[in-house]
């Protein structure tokens, strides 16, 4: 298990370095950063002054090395637009996004897995059809529309929940549902398919032949083998939620990291974009690493050679 962990960890570090290099190169792929900062009406000497000030005239690798060492210390430079340290800016916004992401994936898992198991236990029955209907709805409804419908019902008509802002836990209920419902169908269908496959396995018959109860067969013998791909999928979706919930954050005016990314791109705020790309990629890397560990724990064939 230790060797496996170290191997995965090494891979994760390599991927992180690659991503950091890519995200740093972005700065130079989108044109001359100095003229972008200087603005349209700046003179050539102004641009040169800015280039010297920010150090854009140095060799690429030197600049990258500089940026990376500061990034490791948590220093991503100054935001061009917000005129404050990028790290402070992101830390503030990230807490909202992380809270939303954790709530969203929990909501998705807590609805999708039981529903998938129930559907697999009684295939082609009313339960299965209902689960299918719910997942098709989730797949088909765009998040922005579903979000607006929830606001109309629960904020405007019923006046139960606040439509926007991030002041209290009530603000997170609708965004959680919208974000979670988006991730739910895939997890549900994968759980159902995995369970159906596993339930036909010989070792399930063995468990029944031992005298195990149906619940024990389902949850001890079948589910553990069926959720391995679900864990991997959930990890990717979790990364997606932490990085890409721009739509949901905009609708509910939750000013999180997704929203910040959108703002920074629109305003050519490159240090912020670079930092966000690196952090979003880190999320994916961390969650993939964790899901590898979880799967190794679930399936001994991965960890014991």
């Amino acid at each position: 298990m230790l060797a496996f962990t170290l191997k995965r960890l090494g891979l994760a570090v390599l991927v992180t370095l690659t991503v950091s290099l890519l995200s740093f190169s972005l700065l130079f792929m989108s044109g001359d950063p100095a003229s972008a900062i200087a603005g349209e009406n700046a003179s050539a000497s102004d641009v040169d002054a800015i280039r010297a000030l920010y150090g854009f005239d140095r060799p690429f690798l030197v600049q990258y090395g500089d940026w990376l060492t500061s990034a490791l210390r948590g220093d991503f430079g100054q935001s061009y637009y917000f005129k404050m340290p990028v790290s402070e800016l992101i830390a503030d916004r990230l807490s909202i996004t992380m809270l939303l992401g954790v709530c969203g994936i929990s909501f998705a898992l807590l609805t999708a897995v039981p529903l998938g198991v129930a559907a697999a236990m009684r295939p082609n029955t009313l339960i299965d059809r209902t689960a299918l209907f719910i997942s098709v709805m989730g797949q088909a409804m765009p998040s922005f529309w579903f979000g607006l419908v929830l606001i109309v019902i629960f904020s405007i008509r019923l006046n139960w929940l606040p439509p926007s802002g991030s002041n209290g836990w009530q603000n997170f209920i609708m965004p959680t549902v919208v974000l979670g419902y988006y991730a739910m169908p895939a997890i549900m269908r994968l759980t159902r398919a995995g369970m159906l496959e596993v339930l036909g396995a010989d070792y399930i018959r063995t468990a029944r032949a031992k005298g195990a109860s149906e619940m024990r067969v389902m949850f001890k013998h079948a589910l553990r083998n069926a959720v391995v791909p679900v864990v991997s999928l959930a990890a990717v979706q979790m990364g997606f939620m932490l990085g890409g919930s721009i739509v949901v954050e905009s609708i509910f005016a939750l000013h999180g990291a997704g929203y910040l990314a959108w703002e920074s791109i629109a305003r050519n705020d490159l240090p912020t974009v670079q930092a966000l790309i690196l952090i979003f990629s880190l999320f994916y890397i961390v969650f993939t690493f964790l899901s590898d560990l979880a799967n190794a724990w679930l399936d001994p064939r991965i960890r014991v050679g």
Binding site: Y203, T206, A209, E214, N225, D299
Partner: peptide, 29 residues
């Protein structure tokens, strides 16, 4: 009843299957 059958199965009557390669649960020792 299903419960009573479960009490018999694996206890007073037991079964050995054809496929030893796949009849054990891969996730448990």
């Amino acid at each position: 009843k299903p419960r009573q059958m479960r009490d018999l199965r694996g206890n007073r009557m037991a079964m050995i299957f054809q496929e030893p390669m796949t009849s054990l649960n891969p996730a448990y020792t």
